[in-house]
Design a binder for these strands. Structure first.
Lengths: 201, 201, 201, 201
DNA sequence: AAATAATCGAGACGGTACGTCTGGTCTTACC
DNA sequence: GGTAAGACCAGACGTACCGTCTCGATTATTT
């Protein structure tokens, strides 16, 4: 992440990690307090006790900084349950995700995806740092189910994962309906039952 | 939309519709040319040959203005096909949507949803002006299918519609995978086949 | 001074004179307190309760602003004495100038001339607003002396005025020697006695 | 100039004269090209291939560096003519000075005096390194004239020198009038004729 | 027709944040 | 220990827009 190293970085003073940490921490705090829209680099610099130039030296945009701060705070929490029944694992995990998205995490993720619409590179950071790791974990759980005979071998896991999570993101982002437990149950059943029945997926 | 009229405005000069049109047209043009991020009310006012105050008099925010300009340009194009087979109607329409989202319309819609993350009221405009009309049309098509016996009566149409369109918005917004015809086919089959099989939806 | 009026200034909101006054006053205060080097437009804007853009709208540079603030505060104080003897008038006035230059006014004038070295337009303001009015007054006094027969008619007044005041500015600016009363007396006598004796001036 | 060496500098690496020369040369070049205002230590360091710290180690300020670079380039050129007639010597030399000030040297000297208004120490360097050597040479020429009976013994040479050169600096700095040959002739005659006539100088 | 009233284009205003630049200091690896 | 490189904190620079506010002129409706 951060900067592309050019030429010979073997000389001169080294990057100060204390500054780096202070900047990311200040960014995360301000993001939680006021949201991305109110986030200003001026404010981050002031709170982190850092010159603005130091931020510009290492991050190409406000979005990239916010995204990295978000990822650093959220990345460690993937955790997929592993029990005998893969379907239960998936169902349980989706309920957990739904609950998280109803809370404070929901707003930040909405904003990260929102800002990603205006900076392709920032969206790339989100996909690589947040989305893909979680998609991989979900695909692994589904794969376990296939190997245990819960679903047929022919299904395209990418499409199933999108079918499972896409509608949740959709409701998160457009707020046209609640992401409550009733919805999750009905939705997951629709998709997971569909897998067995589909001729082409 | 626009302003709530208070009291009795029966006297005085009436709102100038030429200005209104010029503003919305300028906004739409600038949106297409440069994107929402580069859109400035100063620029809109200059291009429309209008005072800034005139914009502020009638729209509460930059987002609301952009959304109205977007809706005005896009709204007329709903059109759901009606043939003997509802499943074919749905499939055909989703392919059309996917194709549109791969083009210029895709970027604008992504940006409208993106900016909606930071202005709830603006998102409301999007849902009411764009999303719900299209959801209603989709639900009507599905309802025709049910009445013709293509699917069972027990399904919750809102959940099916989300299952159908959610993943497309998901891919539109996060760009983690293409919205190509292959994907659409596999995805639609998965969901529509699943309807019949699901015990709870 | 200030801006060159372009196009049609008959439309739009008019310039706010209260702002203008606040800006010039704040500038003068800060100039006296800390000197031109420490003067920042940011500081002026803050103290005057004014947006920075308002300053940039009306003054082309920090120097021009400082100069106008200086001139406005200093301009009214020209006053040449008028008695029966022009030589006494000149001598008295130069002593007064010297005394002023030894004090706070001296530092500001030094700085105004100093900054004028880097901005020709600002120097022009100083010459037109400060120097020339005082040179004219001095020439008028000398002219009275000529008409009263104190000096011969042939002298070039511009050269005499430079001979009288140039050395004082020289000492003010380079500080290679004091501008005390002894020096003034000797210097003025040298020049004014010289007038009568010179064959070419 | 530069640093006072304290204690015993016999240990450690010695000062690198190549660096010193490169710095002064780069400074002088940039001064001539763009003027003092555009001069930045960052630029000097880059052009001289030197670290900024090396400059700060040996010069206390940007002004001191510029002044030393100026003095090094200009210092050697004093040269007062010596003929039988001291008055001619003075006149000839002043004409030469005036000619130099009308050219490129004029701008640099103006700027050196200008910056000296904001840094007393830098002005001191100018006076000691430039002004006083030239004043001494002028006083020596005048002294020769006195000893040859061209002027009376009673005159205060400092005052005469100021009377001769002050107006030239005045015109150089405020540009209220040209420093042409006509002016120089009239001015020098006024002052040198005045010497004989003055009762008090 | 006159009086009243809300609209309009224009643009100045107080602000906030931007991204850049420079000043001076400190750190690192090398010589 | 001096040096080149370059990261660091600090803070002013000049610009771009924001949303608000006067202006004088225009356009309807009401009297």
């Amino acid at each position: 992440m951060s900067r592309v190293l050019t030429a010979d970085p073997e000389t001169g003073r080294r990057r100060n990690n204390a500054s780096r940490d202070a900047i990311l921490e200040a960014t995360h705090t301000l993001l939680e307090e006021a949201g991305f829209d109110k986030l200003s680099l001026e404010g981050v610099a002031a709170r982190a006790g850092v010159g603005k130039a130091t931020i510009y030296r290492w991050w190409p945009s406000k979005g990239a900084l916010a995204m990295e701060a978000f990822l650093r705070a959220v990345a460690p929490t993937i955790a997929f349950p592993v029990t005998a029944c893969a379907r239960d694992d998936v169902t349980t995990q989706i309920h957990k995700v739904a609950k998280a998205y109803r809370g404070k995490a929901g707003r930040i993720i909405r904003e990260m995806i929102g800002l990603g619409q205006f900076e392709p590179e920032t969206m790339r950071l989100f996909v690589d740092g947040y989305l893909e790791p979680r998609r991989s974990a979900a695909k692994a759980a589904l794969q376990r189910g296939i190997e245990q005979g819960e679903w047929c071998r022919a299904i395209d896991l990418d499409i199933v994962v999108d079918a499972l999570y896409g509608p949740i993101f959709h409701r998160l982002l457009t707020a046209h309906a609640e992401i409550d437990a009733r919805f999750i149950d009905a939705h997951v059943n629709l998709v997971l039952d569909g897998i067995g029945n589909s001729k082409t997926a």
